[in-house]
Design a protein around this nucleic acid. Structure first.
Lengths: 244, 244
DNA sequence: CTAATAGTGTCTGTAAGACAATATTTT
DNA sequence: AAAATATTGTCTTACAGACACTATTAG
């Protein structure tokens, strides 16, 4: 039997039915807090519970494409969003309907407009990452994995620049680190460190129009540089409990 | 409609058919080279080509469980294998039969016995990671992702200890880093560095029975410590090309 | 003016890397 | 004896973090 004969006699229904979904952990910073986009389920199962935006992949659609589509359906947003694969979850019974394998994606964006709920959602909103409701299915675990990934990537990639606008001040950038990591950083040391990492940021020659809301001089504006990795990295303050 | 009514009226066949497979990038060190387990496909499509061991998930089987099973079917090995999820691949057309989404896993083990090909494989063998044949489907990309992941994890986790036996010398550990990274490290600096990282290794009080094959004193033996992360990390020599 | 913030300077401790030195073992 | 290897020592440079200081702006 050659390859074309084999394919002709092949019946996809021979395989046990598995549904594949994508779920998106979309993060942004709003009102000085790290926030994640959640939708309130309008249909069973788990109607009324908050969940990650997501849904079944469509025929002919690539996985990142599906993730971007699901995100767009909930937020109406496409541009300026960094999206990357997070992990996959496929424990039997994680969805009561049938065997569902979910590929999760992580998305980062600067302050976004309020979401508008899609067709099968009752509501959609940006929730503070530090005050989350109980989530549907195993979405709590997916979200926790996404947060940890984001925190880790801040250390060794220029990811923080995805949370701010086209141009930004060093203080705004520091705010991203402080908000995502949940720590307070030393302004002076942070400033020097960021400028010393090659390709992290580049100056625009411009400054802010006015000083800070509570005083202070105008700050220089920067844009993201061309580095894909930060070297040396900006490490989080030592986390003894995670080492052992 | 309440939740039980919904589930009763639910037909899984409404979803587009997707097959889910697991593929395993199994790495070991043999004869001073990093090697990956490949199987020669015995059935179409791509019969005769080398591929990663893997296959369809079974009903009721969790994903890591499926990966361990596929690996065991090809190697007859279960113990002492560290296994973790790598990434997922689901581009339309990556398998000519139907829509296939593959969840890949990464496995590490010390020098393993020769594999015995499973039922639908013509052959199975450990291939040098630096001299790979063309692989079936998108397995070349999956393997490349797995290698990069392994190289990166060597930096900040005690993963290297998964490639050596229960007890080992600092030189053996250095051999793992040199082989996986493809670099030569300074023996003295490496030695001091490893011992300075808390929880990376712990002494056994024993030494090797004899000196090295080509001379030198007996080396102290160590076992893996209790650290889950290396702090400070053992960084690879700077890779300018990957930074920008 | 006072408070807050941007940005820079200085100092200290830790760590990485180059290089050297010594002791031990095989051939 | 010669060569290889384990282990330790020394020195230099880079860098993280603590702290201090100046300049600029809002209120």
């Amino acid at each position: 039997m050659d390859e074309s004969e084999f394919l002709a006699g092949y019946d996809p229904r021979d395989f046990p039915p598995v549904a594949v979904t994508v779920d998106v952990v979309a993060l942004t910073i709003r009102e000085n807090a790290l926030r994640v986009l959640l939708v309130e389920r309008g249909e069973p199962p788990q109607a009324g519970r908050w969940a990650l935006p997501g849904g079944f992949i469509r025929p002919g659609e690539d996985l990142p494409e599906a993730a971007a589509r699901e995100l767009a359906e909930e937020t109406g947003l496409t541009p300026r969003v960094h999206i990357e694969q997070l992990a996959s979850y496929g424990a039997p019974g994680r969805d009561p309907r049938m065997r569902v394998v979910s590929i999760s994606y992580l998305a980062f964006a600067p302050d976004l407009p309020d979401p508008r709920p899609g067709s099968d959602a009752a509501d959609a909103a940006w929730h503070r990452a530090d005050r989350l409701p109980a989530l549907a299915f195993d979405h709590g675990r997916i979200l926790a994995d996404g947060l940890e990934r984001a925190r880790a990537k801040l250390e060794y990639t220029p990811l923080a620049t995805a949370f701010v606008g086209e141009t930004f001040t060093i203080s705004e950038l520091r705010g991203v680190y402080e908000t995502v990591w949940g720590v307070v950083l030393h302004a002076g040391n942070f400033h020097r460190k960021v400028l010393s990492v090659p390709g992290f940021v580049e100056g625009t020659g411009e400054t802010t129009e006015s000083g800070g809301a509570r005083g202070g001089p105008r700050a220089k504006l920067y844009r993201a540089g061309d580095a894909r990795l930060l070297h040396p990295a900006l490490l989080r303050p030592a986390r003894e409990e995670e080492i052992r």
